[in-house]
Nucleic acid binder design. Structure first.
Lengths: 132, 132
DNA sequence: TCCAAATATTCCTTGACACGTATATACTCC
DNA sequence: GGAGTATATACGTGTCAAGGAATATTTGGA
């Protein structure tokens, strides 16, 4: 277990992370919502903490876990190199961006422009053999 | 081997994908650049193709592999829910965006504004027990 | 038709990891 | 300080995927 990518490969861990987006949660709360055994939850949280995805606070006998941003950025940065690529499919990109823009409230204030709308793809290619 | 997340958990596969960003490549080319054995490359490509990350074209005895965008979008969409979260750390966000902007050439033309600069985080929290 | 080059597939072994059960540790309250 | 709650850890087990070696398959060319 090393990279952030290996960590999020596990479905239960992704579920835990998704749960923590809304707010911090205790082990027991996670256990109930995800219908997992308590040791399973604790073990996944251990892995997540070691990898920097979460941190914990002691509250009586409970431990409250909450997200930490760094590993997510790491993944996002890796993904960035492909973002340039998939932007080539402009129509789909537009749909994607439309969904992304102002998902909650967030008004105006947008500066800087999008992360690169450039078409970095060389040739459109004329498929000849095509897959398989 | 099912989800896109499991696919990119493997370092060699991530390396292959990164290679293919620049242009399509044959198995032999990948083999040499990554110093992997030929069967290893073929096997990983098989997995990548089954998962929709790449497609192949026949060129004489060679197979040319190139990227397909869909699975990357899937990952990105999962990541999106956390993007709102990590945006809370504004200062760090700014650094991040500065790195993102116009990574290659890509001039002006920016519309629509960034994918959400919103601070969706409830309380800044006053750490009391702090990690571990 | 036979050979060589490029790639795919099969078989086998090994190691990692997710899970469950049982147990240990920590903390609260009476 | 003993009982109860909440969480962590230890241990044993089964599964599955990655890697290597050997072999099959496909295609081009003499």
């Amino acid at each position: 277990m090393e990279t952030a990518f290996e960590i999020i490969a596990e479905p239960n861990r992704r579920a835990i992370l998704s749960l923590l987006v809304s707010s911090e949660q205790s082990v027991g709360e996670i256990e109930r919502q995800l219908r997992m055994t308590q040791p399973a939850v604790s073990k996944h949280l251990r892995v997540l903490r070691d990898a920097g995805f979460v941190e914990s606070t002691v509250d009586a006998q409970r431990r409250l876990y909450r997200l930490k941003p760094e590993p997510f950025r790491e993944i996002d940065e890796w993904l960035a190199q492909f973002r340039r690529f998939w932007s080539a499919h402009v129509d789909a990109l537009e749909r994607y961006l439309d969904r992304m823009d102002e998902p909650t409230s967030a008004k105006g204030k947008s500066t800087k422009g999008k992360p690169s709308k450039t078409n970095a793809r060389p040739k459109p290619r004329t498929n000849k053999g095509e897959s398989k």
